[in-house]
Design a binder for these strands. Sequence first.
RNA 1: GGACCUGUGGUGCAGUCUGGAGUGCACGCCGCCCUGUCAAGGCGGAGGUCGCGGGUUCAAAUCCCGUCAGGUCCGCCA
Length: 583
Amino acid sequence: MRTHLCGQLEDGDVGRFIRLCGWVSRRREHGEHLAFVDLRDHTGTIQCVVDGSVDARSEYVVAVTGTLRRRPEGMENPNLATGGWEVGDCEIEVLATAEPPPFAVEDRVDVDEATRLRYRYIDLRRPRMQANLRLRAVVNAALRAAMDRMGFCEVETPLLWSPTPEGAREFAVPSRLHPGAFYVLPQSPQLAKQLLMVSGMDRYYQIARCLRDEDLRADRQFEFTQLDMEASFVNQDDVLGFVSESVLDAAEAATGERPPPIARMTWAEALERYGTDKPDLRFAMELVDLGEVFATTEVRAFAAPQGARRHAVKALVVEGGASFARSRLDGLVETAKAEGAKGLAWFKVTEGDGVVGLDSPLDRFLSETERTGLLAASGAVVGDLVLVVSDEHRLACTVLGRMRVALGGRPVGEGPYRYVWVVEFPMFDGVDSAGHPVPAHHPFTMPHPDDLDLLETDPAAVRSQAYDLVLNGWELGSGSVRVHRADIQGRIFAALGISAEQAEARFGFLLDAFRYGAPPHAGFAFGIDRLAAIFSGADTIREVIAFPKTQSGADPLTGAPKALSANALADLGIKTTVPAPER
RNA sequence: GGACCUGUGGUGCAGUCUGGAGUGCACGCCGCCCUGUCAAGGCGGAGGUCGCGGGUUCAAAUCCCGUCAGGUCCGCCA
């Protein structure tokens, strides 16, 4: 139907009789003897000149025939990639008429999210969205090529999986052939890929859809896509190497620039310096430890309470923050309290009569040593604001870590790109209602070899061989060395308070498999939505997903979720207890 | 489950604090004019349940209560 694409014309095509197909982007008529039509396809836009009037209106689908020519001197449009040419003496054939679109098919118009999703097919016509989806495809292709090159085999795993009551809430799928029973959609192919290791696949990967019925965020949808991988006879360094290779390949393909090798940081260091396990390294603003300054303090707010397990006094310097209004400072204090801190102290670094001083409600309680110690340790200078949290160590760090991002952060998709490996995650994270430790990653994570004996004595101190990949403050993905030995797995289940019977009921099929010869294995999975969003400069993954859901999990285009007919429900053996909402 | 922001012709906004006629801006749409524009230009025109419901008031886009929708975040996401 066409001889060329709008955006792929070349100087060598000048003089050729060509035929292009696409949508009318814009029409400019100059009376009955001259009209311009900007024709848009997925590759770009080009100006078509018609000697006469044009029946086609915006978003009509047309085929244009004419001769490509250089534009007359002085008529070039430097704002258009094809602005040096135009199609002359055009005949325009209308292939489909179109109603005026609900919003303009242009990048610069900012449209309400609900409207965009209701008319997603029009939204996706916009060059920006076209570029996003195509960039994502480039990322996918680069990832596949890298995995292929490293000897990984692509294997598909089931979407209809078995419930495993652990972790994220699962989407349930009723079984028609087994009324009353359910499949679930996998929150990840975790167990399947471990089975593939027992199967001798050696190196598996999959661009896998994962589904979790948890609340949505800018970086979280119900369904998301991961590059999922697992390899046998490898250690942590090997896995980090595989993932780095694939991610850096994708980065190079997407941005044209290969990032330097990805540095590593321990989880403890990330918490200490950035107050988070996903540090944004595009800016410094590191947390400062004031523990020494206030080690023997008389200031009650900064003193460790009796019997405190691990108390810390941490600080954050906000450059230029001395100008913050009292109301804004009050807001920060409220935020800190809302996040669980007992309080937040602030010190404005001021200067009066050539003397550097602190402006703070707490200043009069500080000794001179503490005053100079605070300034020296924090490095704050006149005009800065120092925020201080004195609390349980991890809480003090995380509260300030969030302030760091809130006060110094930038949109995630804004360059430069700063990757970092966060390694040596704790094995457990808090305790459940029964007092048992909760796995930070999953129960098949191998503890750090040096900490094995702490499993029984001090589980909270056990580090694991689990690791995260972080980019610009977003967690791209995580992985771990897996447990392949029954004895260690048993000790972990014991630490978790999972009995042999419970383990058998939940993961029996995996434990069974492991009895038949499980190779040491390790793996990783990272979010392609997030990676593609960051490469696209987007600040939500919806920008790189063709048909995403709203924050309430609805699809304005199809109306999903909807009620099922009584017949369909009966077929599935389902009886609902509430009427479906009308939308 | 919770906090905050937003909701006004098709689109994006102003108006809301401090109540007084659906007032305004830009784009789009429709008609006419226009032979080199390119976010074309000129003239004219149409288009409104101010998200929805209730309350206060002589009077509500504006104040109050509730509710719905979209967004950001907390919880949640092994």
